[in-house]
Simulated scan of single mutants.
Amino acid sequence: MEDSYFLHELKKKACFFLKEHVKIVRLALTDVTHAQLLTEEAISGNPWPPDSPSMREITKASFEVDEFYRIVEILHKRLERFEARQWRASYNAVILVEHALTHGPYSFAKEFANDRAVLREMEGFHFVDDKGFNWGESVRKLSARVLKLLEEEDFLIQERIKARNLTRGIQGFGSFSRRSSPTKDESHSNRFNRKQHESEYNGTRNLSLIETRQGSGDWKGVRKWEEAADWEEVSQSLISSVL
């Protein structure tokens, strides 16, 4: 029994070691980016869902135009069809899509509008594992939520505002735990991180514009303005950081 457990653990470590070295080789010898590798791993069909740090890193990378289309391409391929036998891969992909819709560039909504047929198919999925957990219900609920985000623009905008406010609230709470007298290096780092965060999440200008337009129904104008702000502000941030 102990020998079997030891052999199993040895195989797991060897597999992990091999995967990590393959990543290093791909990064060094191919055009693949770190965000692409994270996306592939997040939707690879693992028995666990994508972790929050990985999804945050993928979403942040998606504010760069080139990375955005690389990430979208991987997700599109995964969502081309739904296979019940490999439901975890599709489920993990939808988890990442939901996070991208609420935390990433607004352009994600346009990109995944054509994947609604697969999401509707997933709404009919049923599966209960050996321990009695109803995974089918989880898949159906998440698919229904993502469909609503794609089809109801006012709901999408409200959820993006909620997600952004939650992110700011968490960061604000974390700031109280910092030392009262940061060093010079820490102050410089904090200023850079704050500027980078404001560029990536479009600052308060998007929120104020959205909130003032809610009663007018001018969602189209909001969407165009927000998309332009995403790429323009991130580009300015990148240029300023280099200079």
Rank of each mutant, 00 (worst) to 15 (best):
R116Y: 06
L238S: 07
A93G: 07
A163L: 09
E64K: 13
K141D: 12
T102Y: 05
E20V: 15
R85I: 11
D230K: 01
E152W: 14
G132R: 02
T167E: 05
A144W: 04
V22A: 11
S90P: 15
L101R: 00
Q36S: 10
R191K: 07
R223N: 01
K11L: 15
F82W: 02
P182M: 00
E121G: 07
F127D: 00
I161K: 01
I161R: 00
R205G: 00
E198G: 02
H76G: 05
R26S: 12
E73S: 09
H126R: 06
F155W: 12
L7Y: 09
A100T: 03
A144R: 10
S143W: 14
F133R: 02
A229T: 10
P182F: 01
L79Y: 04
D3Q: 06
H126S: 08
R81Q: 09
C15P: 09
N202S: 11
S44C: 15
F155Y: 15
R191W: 14
D31R: 10
P105Q: 03
R194H: 09
E227Q: 03
W48S: 12
I71A: 01
R194C: 04
Q158R: 10
E226Y: 13
F133P: 09
L147W: 06
R178A: 11
K224G: 07
A84I: 09
S90M: 03
I43H: 07
K220N: 09
P182G: 00
K11R: 11
Y5G: 02
E232R: 05
W135F: 15
L156W: 13
I71S: 00
E211I: 15
S4L: 15
T183G: 11
T183V: 06
S208Y: 12
Q196Y: 10
A84V: 14
V72Y: 07
R145K: 13
R205E: 02
N202L: 13
Q86C: 05
L38P: 00
A163N: 04
A144T: 13
F125Q: 00
G215E: 04
L150T: 03
H8W: 12
Y69L: 12
H126V: 13
L142K: 05
W135A: 09
S181N: 10
G172V: 06
F112W: 03
S90V: 02
V128E: 04
I157W: 02
V65N: 03
D230Q: 03
H34Y: 14
G221D: 06
K162W: 04
P47Y: 15
H188F: 13
D218Y: 10
F133Y: 08
Y69S: 08
S187W: 15
T204I: 12
D218R: 03
H126W: 07
P53H: 00
F112G: 02
E121T: 09
N202K: 08
I24N: 06
W87R: 01
E9Q: 11
N92C: 14
R120L: 12
